[in-house]
């Protein structure tokens, strides 16, 4: 295990992580010796061709997959060293997840989809629903609270997903191809919304995507290829959206 010196103010630190699938002749190194630090409120975009290891990397960041080597630290806790049964709670309270195909529960309304995640984290049903309603309203879905996912547009669904990712006050939001199922205008709008909220609330965001059009919402763009970072593009200018 790699020991990472605690750096104040850093949300996420990953040091020299490698992920290998399989063994022997069929062994695949999906991620190789990757290091990365994400500051509070920072929006990082990881891009790369298909098969470059983006999903594998994101799964490790989200405590869904253990790295073969290296360490992942979140706000001082080395989550890559935690026992398996501690991880659900970490995911629930420290991470917000946003998926390519929204992944909403089809039987629950927009409000229900957000509230259930707060309930899982221990909120009382009434409290959870109030929290969910206020976040959804903030995201412009005040009129859609009681709509089932099937009655929502793609952009609205992804906003519900963002609300769900925010409801438990996570330190880090992880998004996997969040614009892949949205048209480019809506996709860009939603990413800008996510960026604004992250900035306002001081939450870090890591987005994995190969959508070139959302590059401008990131503070930093990393290029992943064959499981390794090839170049770092820093969007130094802090623009107003």
């Amino acid at each position: 295990m790699t020991i990472i010196p605690q750096v104040q103010g850093e949300t996420l630190q990953i040091a020299h992580i490698t992920k290998r699938y399989g063994s022997g002749a069929t062994e695949v190194t999906a991620v190789h010796d990757v290091s990365l630090t994400v500051s509070p409120g920072e929006v990082v975009l990881i891009m790369g061709p298909s098969g470059s290891g983006k999903t594998t990397l994101l799964s490790m960041l989200g405590a869904l997959l253990k790295p073969t080597e290296g360490a992942i630290q979140l706000n001082g806790t080395t989550i890559s060293a935690l026992a398996e049964n501690r991880l659900p709670d970490i995911r629930l309270k420290q991470f917000g997840f946003i998926f390519q195909d929204f992944n909403l529960l089809s039987a629950l309304t927009a409000l229900g989809n957000v509230a259930i995640v707060a309930e899982l984290a221990g909120s009382k049903p009434g409290v959870a629903r109030r929290k969910a309603a206020s976040i959804l309203t903030e995201l412009g879905l005040g009129e859609r609270l009681n709509f089932l996912p099937e009655k929502l547009s793609g952009g609205e669904k992804q906003r519900v997903a963002i609300a769900r990712a925010l409801v438990n006050d996570p330190a880090l939001i992880l998004a996997d191809e969040p614009t892949a199922n949205l048209d480019s205008k809506i996709g860009h709008e939603i990413m800008r919304l996510l960026r604004n909220i992250a900035k306002k609330q001081g939450r870090s965001v890591v987005i994995v995507s190969h959508d070139q059009r959302i590059k401008d919402i990131a503070d930093r763009v990393l290029w992943l290829e064959d499981g390794e970072f090839k170049e770092t593009v820093t969007m130094a200018v802090e623009r107003e959206f």
Binding site: K93, N103, L120
Partner: peptide
Amino acid sequence: RREYGMLKALGARNTD
């Protein structure tokens, strides 16, 4: 299946 898998990813425990 996918919905339950998603809930697990978000942090739902098996018992939930």
